[in-house]
């Protein structure tokens, strides 16, 4: 099994760079309202005339809404595509018009203050839900450097919000495709007491570091690398899930704080109970916000 075969998802954008630029112009002219208005038609076009979009939505929707068929499924596909489009527009709005155009609320500041004061860093285990970029802006109060584990491919034309105005990157990027999967940089960041953000719902590297866990009624593969790093470093794992609350608002949910004991060993089985906690939090999230889960690949595929 090669890395490419194991990794089913892609970060490549559906639309072209030109199409993205049109939205950027719309945002400059009429703000989020005009961009949203056009989005309703663009999303409809993609859902009706691009079978690949329906297929990519279908992996998740068939598990979240197993009984849905025909028009019902088409409607869900449209809702899901629309929500993704809104999140991308929101990100661009923040980048083009300023961070103050979007509000992000977070109620559990004290918990994070306490965790950061332990001095072992924090692993934010997130997922492809809501907008993690807007959500992270709600965490500036921590005043702790943030390291984001992220991989971008050629063909990914979505801009991060700070790229719109050539702002300084608000976080350090660690590429999981780099030397030893970037793990040395991750460990180093935690040793300095910094924040490490990882996505727990997409595969990197080989299948050896994954666990099969029931998610929405069927076993899906999840990487356990965050739990392994937590076990080695002693850093707490905080499951953070951002969600859109309205046209200009986001919330950030601290769904779990997971403590992984040290010295658990080498194989994934030891990390299963901790990853299961994460997956349960993710499943709860999809129950509450069914159209804010943006993983458009077959997580349930059997290898």
């Amino acid at each position: 099994m090669t890395k490419k075969e194991a990794r089913q998802w892609t970060s490549r954008s559906i639309g072209s760079a030109f199409q993205h630029k049109i939205f950027y112009v719309l945002i400059r002219i009429g703000g989020w309202r005009l961009a949203y208005l056009v989005l309703y038609f663009v999303a409809l076009y993609y859902v009706l005339f691009r079978p690949s979009v329906r297929k990519r939505c279908g992996y998740y929707l068939s598990h979240r809404f197993p009984g849905q068929v025909g028009l019902q499924r088409l409607k869900s596909c449209y809702q899901l595509s629309l929500e993704l489009g809104k999140v991308l527009i929101d990100r661009a709005v923040v980048g083009i018009l300023g961070v103050d155009r979007m509000s992000a609320s977070f109620d559990d500041k004290k918990i994070l203050y306490d965790l950061i004061s332990e001095g072992k860093g924090i692993i934010f285990l997130m997922a492809h839900v809501g907008s993690w970029q807007v959500a992270l802006s709600a965490l500036h109060f921590l005043k702790t450097p943030v390291n984001m584990v992220i991989h971008r491919e050629e063909g990914d034309v979505d801009r991060h919000y700070f790229e719109h105005r050539s702002l300084e990157w608000p976080y350090r990027i660690i590429d999981p495709e780099g030397f030893l999967g970037g793990t040395l940089e991750m460990t180093d960041a935690l040793k300095k007491g910094e924040i490490l953000c990882m996505m727990g719902d997409r595969l990197f590297g080989n299948l050896k570091n994954t666990l099969s866990i029931r998610f929405l009624g069927e076993d899906a593969l999840f990487p356990f690398s965050a739990m392994k790093i937590a076990s080695t470093s002693g850093a707490p794992v905080v499951v953070l899930l951002p969600f859109k609350t309205g046209p200009t608002g986001y919330g950030l949910r601290l769904a779990r704080v997971i403590r992984v004991p040290e010295g658990l060993g080498r194989t994934g089985d030891h990390f299963l109970p901790y990853m299961e906690e994460y997956v349960r939090a993710l499943e709860d999230f999809t129950m509450e916000y069914p159209f804010q889960f943006f993983n458009f690949y077959d997580m349930w595929k059997r290898f």
């Binding site: 999967g181 793990t183 940089e185 590297g205 050896k208 392994k228 080695t232 470093s233 080498r266």
Partner: peptide, 24 residues
């Protein structure tokens, strides 16, 4: 060994030899 073993190895080297492998 794989990338996750590298994380463990950094800690092991520090624990047994008091030598830090700081970065990539």
């Amino acid at each position: 060994l794989d990338s996750l073993d590298a994380v463990e190895l950094v800690v092991i080297i520090q624990k047994h030899f008091n030598v830090e492998i700081k970065d990539m």
